[in-house]
């Protein structure tokens, strides 16, 4: 039950994009098509999950025993960057179609603050391994959910009768703001 509460909180109530306003660059950049949004979402889930686990073990089995916790930030940044390089290499070799869809956005995952946030938040909250796993999956699932919803809305907006000055990013940003307002109504359900 506790894990369910944590998951629902991470996905809906404390949604990383609409409540904490992190990861906005890929959120706006990848949401022009629902297909690329789904692909980006899965890539983010994979990277955040993997990077969070690696940083968790690095923190508790290397940094803490050696009393070099001050290296946490640089460690996490290097681990995330290295992991994204690995993911890009893996996608290039194994899924050219996915690379064609996502390739341009993969560098955005490296600098995506959501990845670093989840890695650091797991440590800051004092989560054990199971809570870390749940949080590391739930947060990017929430990210993917919002990304997909936003992509669907943008696809509809493209064919809508929008004033010329509002077409593209202006109306998209207004829509994102309205989504944030809508999600703020979920506060208190867990």
């Amino acid at each position: 039950m506790e894990f369910l509460t944590l998951a629902i909180g991470a996905i809906l109530v404390n949604n990383i994009v609409l409540s904490k306003f992190l990861g906005l660059c890929p959120f706006l950049g990848v949401s022009k098509s629902s297909k690329s949004a789904i692909g980006m979402g899965f890539a983010v889930i994979f990277v955040i999950f993997g990077a969070s686990l690696i940083t968790y073990f690095l923190n508790y089995y290397i940094l803490v025993p050696n009393e070099i916790e001050y290296m946490q930030l640089i460690t996490f940044i290097l681990v995330i960057a290295a992991f994204v390089q690995f993911v890009e290499m893996f996608i290039k070799k194994n899924s050219p179609s996915l690379y064609k869809t996502l390739g341009i956005y993969l560098p955005l995952i490296t600098t995506n603050c959501v990845v670093l946030y989840v890695a650091q938040d797991n440590i800051a909250q004092g989560y054990d391994l199971l809570h870390t796993i749940v949080n590391s999956i739930a947060v990017p699932v929430g990210y993917m959910l919002v990304l997909y919803l936003f992509a669907c809305l943008r696809e509809r907006l493209d064919s809508a009768d929008t004033p010329k000055a509002w077409k593209g990013n202006p109306i998209a940003l207004v829509t994102a703001g309205l989504m944030a307002l809508a999600f703020s109504g979920l506060a208190g359900i867990v």
Binding site: I68, M71, I74, T75, L78, V79, A81, Q85, F86, M89
Partner: peptide
């Protein structure tokens, strides 16, 4: 520790 991580990143 930093050098090890940096080398891993550069190699990847």
């Amino acid at each position: 520790y930093f050098l090890i991580l940096a080398v891993v990143y550069v190699l990847l």
